[in-house]
Amino acid sequence: MALLRVIERDRRDVLGEGPLWSARDDAVYWTDILGHRINRLSLAGGAVESWRMPGYTGWVIERESGGFVAGIGREVAVLDPDGTIIDRIARIEPDRAGNRVNDAKADAAGRVWMGTMPITADKPTGGFYRLDPEGAVTLVDHGYSIANGPAIGADGQTILHTDSGLGIIYRFQLDAAGNPGERTEFIRFEPHWGKPDGMTFDAEGGLWVACWGGGCVMRFTPEGERDRIIELPASQISSCTFAGPNLDRMFVTSAAVDVDEPLGGALFEVDPGCRGLPTHRYRG
């Protein structure tokens, strides 16, 4: 039977998201978007800490020069190692007060790829953006109702992005300068799978997808064929990441919003049976 561990702590996430492995800190970080929090699990001792943030906190990513950057509301903020905001470096969609940032990943070039969505999750006003190290923000794609789960391939030339509302995972190919081509449909979810949410690649090119409403994480082959399912004791599974010195442990976030489940909003650890890819940092 596969490993399944519930991380012990004194609270559940309203909307857990964005798990991040930090080899620097030997810790897993993740956010509670609706709870306005950043959480940290120390792998060495198992202690969990939590910091209250001033708004919807979609993601947190390590910064090459130290500390972190985080998507809060419609801004990108710089945080010190203890989670205190020390600067704000970018505004996203300043003219769309009804939107917020949702999920993001950094690539090997030190850029951050992130999505936005309406707070109400009911209209296609969200977008997909690239934040460059010098602070420039570029619109990559638009028309998302629930922008989710960037995943970056090992070659650095393939980026996947999801509209959870439509149940579609899209693929973008990047040129040598990091500019994406036209999006193509990669995987369309069957209705009984739930909705594709956060995603990550493993070292073999497999894609792991958290299934919102499906109570599991699924693995897809590089060709987009479903080949493995790990079921979890919560329905709203939101994202996953590989962690640990060998990148062979997987941590999975979930949500408690709109459900009455004992483990809704828990952080889980499962055995993926494979290894992941290293975490990249923002170079700005």
Rank of each mutant, 00 (worst) to 15 (best):
D175N: 13
W208K: 04
I159A: 05
D197R: 04
D258L: 07
D155K: 02
P133R: 13
N148E: 12
R281F: 09
R100Q: 10
S42F: 07
Q236L: 14
Y144K: 00
F68K: 04
H192L: 00
G224E: 09
G224F: 01
G181V: 07
G67I: 02
E231G: 10
V270K: 02
E134I: 03
G273H: 01
L4S: 01
G178Y: 01
V69P: 07
R275M: 08
E93M: 07
F220T: 02
T138M: 12
R283D: 14
T57V: 10
R88F: 09
L4C: 01
V217N: 12
T138A: 15
I92F: 08
L20G: 00
F186A: 03
V6G: 06
W21I: 06
N246P: 00
W30S: 07
G127V: 13
C211M: 00
T253W: 05
A203F: 04
N148C: 12
A147E: 03
Q157K: 14
R100D: 12
A90Y: 03
P233V: 09
W208Q: 03
C216I: 01
G110K: 12
D95G: 03
G55L: 00
E8M: 01
D155Y: 07
G18H: 08
E269V: 08
M117E: 14
I159K: 02
R24I: 12
G178H: 03
G66T: 14
A90M: 05
I187G: 04
H280W: 12
E49I: 01
R283K: 15
S65H: 01
E93H: 08
L166V: 04
G276C: 09
E231Q: 09
W30T: 03
R219Q: 13
